[in-house]
Amino acid sequence: MADERTTNGRTTTDEHNTICAVDIEGFGGGDRTRPNYVALREGMYTAVEQAFQRSGIPWDNCYHEGAGDSILALAPSTVGKATFAANLPTALAATLRAHNAEHPPEERLRLRMALHAGEITRDARGVTGTAIIHAARLLEAPPLKEALRTSTGLLAVIASAWFYDEVIRQHTENAPEDYVRFDVSVKETSGTGWIRLPDGARPEPPPRHEIEKREDTAPANGSSVVTVSPVVRPASPEFYQVVDAIEAIPCMQGEHTRSFVIDQLRFAGAIRYFPNRRAHVTSILRTCLDFEDGVVQLVTAISEQEPSGSLPLNRLVSLLGNGA
């Protein structure tokens, strides 16, 4: 049921919609030509439209708009949400495979998809609403990007906490056991998302072990390559010495610059945020130790924000190089 109102001569309509947003992975990367980009966009639209139809979701009854490498589609309340949960993920994976089988590598698609639902407002210029913004933030969540990057498949799906609780987990045909819960923090949005890889399996995370010296991970400002031997153990005295050294670095003292450093890490979404600076730095280091080369990534990201010869950064590198 839609609520229509007129304000200052403009008519708007409020209604509850199922929200589906998709985005092409790595759209701007690679040595692509304009015809390649056209083929990618056309392939995305064709794959999504065909997947909707195969799932029993009438594409022509949905509002949809594109923005370069993404599509926003809204289904009215007359379309059952269960069709998005039970049928759409596998249908879209199938249409993506069909597209890729007929195109060269530079025109092959991998997509991220977000599922949510909520109140939206339509006007003469399109649609808006906090639910749409939330879906867009989910689509940009680092854990979703990382899940697709490390997946063997072509599609990664993230469902909002509401959509998972109220739709997906209610019925076994929605494959609720295939979703994994992640914390999501993107811009103003902080909450929970549930991620599924309908056509691929994410590899097991590598075991935590000694970080080896690598020529390609030298900090950009000329500091020494980072090695940690032995591995710094969480909650050990050495661990807190490293926390002290990180906290003393200027770019890690401000929340904005600290967030910019975190954004450069491939596992940024796994880092738990704390408003207290020391607690946040401690959380960052703990998470880095859980990932292969995590500390190397952190020091490299910090070095890109610090001036050449930064004494606090050099102290950190020295501390790590001596095994803390």
Rank of each mutant, 00 (worst) to 15 (best):
G43Y: 11
R315P: 14
P205C: 01
T11G: 02
D290F: 09
H280V: 01
E140C: 12
A124D: 12
E42G: 07
E4M: 08
R196V: 04
P198N: 00
R122T: 15
R34E: 07
V157Y: 09
R110I: 08
L40D: 11
P142R: 05
R286S: 15
S190Y: 11
A131E: 08
A324G: 15
P312S: 01
G68D: 09
A117E: 14
P176F: 04
S223Y: 14
V48W: 05
P76Y: 00
R277H: 09
N174Q: 10
E102H: 13
P89K: 01
G294C: 01
S308I: 09
G153E: 08
G200S: 01
L320H: 02
A235S: 13
I71N: 06
T300G: 13
P206H: 10
L313T: 02
L144H: 02
R169V: 15
D69V: 05
K145W: 10
S55F: 08
D178G: 06
A2H: 06
P250S: 03
P207A: 11
N221T: 06
R54T: 12
V225R: 14
I271F: 07
A268W: 02
G269Q: 03
T227C: 14
T11E: 03
S303E: 12
A218R: 07
N17S: 03
P230I: 02
V295T: 04
L74G: 04
G309I: 01
A136H: 02
T95R: 00
T13Q: 03
N17L: 06
F163M: 00
F291T: 03
I132G: 09
R137E: 13
A114Y: 14
A21G: 08
E292F: 11
P206N: 13
T121P: 07
R108V: 05
R233A: 13
A47C: 13
D290K: 05
V180N: 07
G191H: 10
V127I: 05
M1P: 01
